[in-house]
Amino acid sequence: MKPIKSVILLLLVVIASSFTKDSFSYEDGYKVGDYASDFSLKNIDGKMVSLADFNDAKGYLVIFTCNTCPYAKAYEDRIIALDKKYKTKGVPVVAINPNNPKVQPGDSFEKMIKRAEKKGFTFPYLLDEGQKVYPQYGATRTPHVFLLEKTTKGNKVRYIGAIDDNYQDAEAVETKYVEDAIEAMLDGKEIKINSTKAIGCSIKV
């Protein structure tokens, strides 16, 4: 009977652990070629924002970022520049703060408003309240980029990863992963590098 009891106990542990947050595998998020679900999240102006709100978009640059991570801060000016360059071409930036403000108070909604005003964000800055969106995407870091192409079948994931190859110095960047991916997507060409490792702070849960 002991072996049977052990098996039953093991099954109960597995079932129970499947309901805990720690059991989630972020490798189960979107891969290049998948179709990403839309979302509805609160923007810093208090309004709810969805990808569907951008009627004329050809795609979207969904970037998981935050107020407090040094890597995210280092990329803020580059994210603003990406939005200014590609929003007029139909690929706007949609930034999402995935951090739990109870764990990271500096990433509270109120602090998001202040940060956006200080930096002059030109794009929506949304709070992933309840942390429901970033696990779907498979985001693990801030910043973590997902380039989506708007198609008749849905929003197709075309690139995942880092913005470029040098978070420390924008002037020393050799490969602009996101810009190269957007240009290729808009030209209908193959994206040569469609996945890179996101470099940044872990998402605070």
Rank of each mutant, 00 (worst) to 15 (best):
I160H: 02
Y125I: 04
R141C: 04
N155F: 12
I79Y: 03
A184Q: 00
F54L: 06
A16L: 08
D180V: 13
K31N: 15
D45P: 08
A57Y: 05
A116Y: 06
E183R: 00
D164Y: 07
A162L: 13
D38Q: 04
D77M: 10
A198I: 07
E27H: 13
P105F: 11
I160M: 11
V14K: 01
A198Q: 11
Y30C: 07
I44Q: 00
A52T: 12
D165C: 05
K89P: 00
V32A: 05
A16P: 03
D77E: 07
A57M: 04
K111P: 02
T152F: 15
R158P: 03
Y30I: 09
R158M: 14
F64T: 03
K114W: 15
R78L: 07
A36V: 05
A16S: 08
A36N: 04
G161D: 07
D45A: 08
S50G: 06
G90P: 00
K132S: 11
D28G: 14
L148N: 01
K197I: 15
K84F: 13
T68I: 04
F54T: 12
N55I: 11
K58G: 01
D164Q: 03
P101I: 08
A198L: 09
K2H: 13
N99Q: 08
V49M: 02
S6A: 15
E117M: 09
V205W: 15
A172C: 12
L61D: 07
D38W: 05
L148Y: 03
D56A: 13
A95M: 07
K21A: 14
S18V: 11
D53Y: 07
L148D: 01
H144Q: 03
A170Q: 14
T65N: 05
G130Y: 08
L12Y: 15
G130R: 04
I191G: 00
V91Y: 02
V173F: 02
G33M: 06
D45Q: 03
A16T: 12
S195Q: 12
T20F: 10
I79V: 11
D22Y: 12
I191T: 01
L11C: 09
K5N: 12
F109P: 05
N155P: 07
K192N: 10
L61E: 14
A52R: 12
I4G: 03
V49S: 00
I199R: 03
T142S: 09
C66N: 04
S202W: 09
L147Y: 02
V62G: 01
N55R: 09
Q104R: 13
K31F: 10
D164K: 02
Q131A: 09
G59K: 00
D83C: 14
L61Y: 07
K58I: 01
I96P: 02
Y60W: 10
K21P: 04
R115C: 12
E179R: 03
K132L: 11
N43F: 13
Y75Q: 11
K21D: 09
I63W: 01
V91N: 00
N97E: 11
